[in-house]
Simulated scan of single mutants.
Amino acid sequence: MKWILFDKDGTIIYFDCSWMKIGLKLVDDFMETYEHSIEDKSAAYAHLGVVDGEILPGTIMASGALDEMVQAFCDIANQDVTDWAQRRSQTLVDNRVPENVLVEGITESLETLQQQGYKLGIVTSDSKKGVEQFLEVTDFAHFFDVVISTEANAVEKPNPEVLNPLFEQYDVAPEDVAIVGDTANDIQTGVNAKLGLKVAVMTGVGLKDEFTKADYIVETANDIVSILDK
């Protein structure tokens, strides 16, 4: 391996609860905006993974990509709500207050990987604004050679094109790249892009039985150090 790509939320930091707040707000706004088109609100909430005011792990709203959420909204409303959902989601993301709680030991692990000569990157569904805030608060910018964020209407994980900024900027083969993340979408990105190593971590919203395509399932991103040492 030459490159290690990390997801951010749920991998480098513990899953940011502000994302759950955004998800709940988006669902509530959807239910209110399209209430006349929704036949059964309780069933709609359950389908999206919202039960008793909480988002359940492994559901669409917990770990699905935005396009999966939008498609679910369209199905529930029996109409195309794509424009509304994308605009409302972006507004909520732009106005969120992030929570950055580092996974214990991650600073030392990043330092070790960097000293060992690995190139490091971030590939996240967060916006550029959110990533910049994270890098400023943590003072982690010096660790990462490439940072890939997701803006409105851009491709998202697990579409392999999300990694184009890496492959267009650097001469590296996919088999020399590892990806570390907390959701099935992170792992599927590695599959779709034919990356050489896919490592799932249990510090986020993903469930262990979702990681059938991972090469390793570990407790935290720190374990990538010992995996590479093998």
Rank of each mutant, 00 (worst) to 15 (best):
residue 90 Q to R: 02
residue 46 A to P: 07
residue 63 S to N: 03
residue 94 D to C: 13
residue 107 T to Q: 11
residue 35 E to F: 01
residue 33 T to D: 02
residue 73 F to P: 07
residue 60 I to G: 11
residue 80 D to G: 11
residue 90 Q to C: 00
residue 109 S to G: 10
residue 39 E to K: 04
residue 86 Q to P: 03
residue 37 S to W: 03
residue 73 F to H: 05
residue 90 Q to I: 08
residue 74 C to G: 00
residue 32 E to W: 13
residue 37 S to E: 05
residue 63 S to Q: 04
residue 29 D to M: 07
residue 48 L to W: 02
residue 58 G to D: 00
residue 49 G to Y: 03
residue 97 V to L: 10
residue 78 N to W: 00
residue 96 R to E: 09
residue 90 Q to V: 02
residue 67 D to N: 12
residue 61 M to Y: 14
residue 89 S to C: 05
residue 38 I to M: 00
residue 93 V to L: 10
residue 93 V to A: 04
residue 25 K to S: 07
residue 107 T to N: 05
residue 92 L to R: 07
residue 38 I to Y: 06
residue 115 Q to Y: 06
residue 55 I to W: 09
residue 105 G to L: 15
residue 84 W to M: 14
residue 95 N to H: 11
residue 52 D to A: 10
residue 52 D to R: 10
residue 28 D to S: 11
residue 51 V to T: 14
residue 40 D to I: 01
residue 89 S to E: 08
residue 63 S to M: 09
residue 84 W to K: 10
residue 53 G to Y: 15
residue 48 L to F: 08
residue 115 Q to H: 00
residue 101 V to K: 08
residue 62 A to L: 06
residue 77 A to R: 00
residue 79 Q to H: 04
residue 25 K to N: 03
residue 60 I to V: 15
residue 48 L to T: 02
residue 71 Q to F: 13
residue 91 T to R: 09
residue 27 V to S: 06
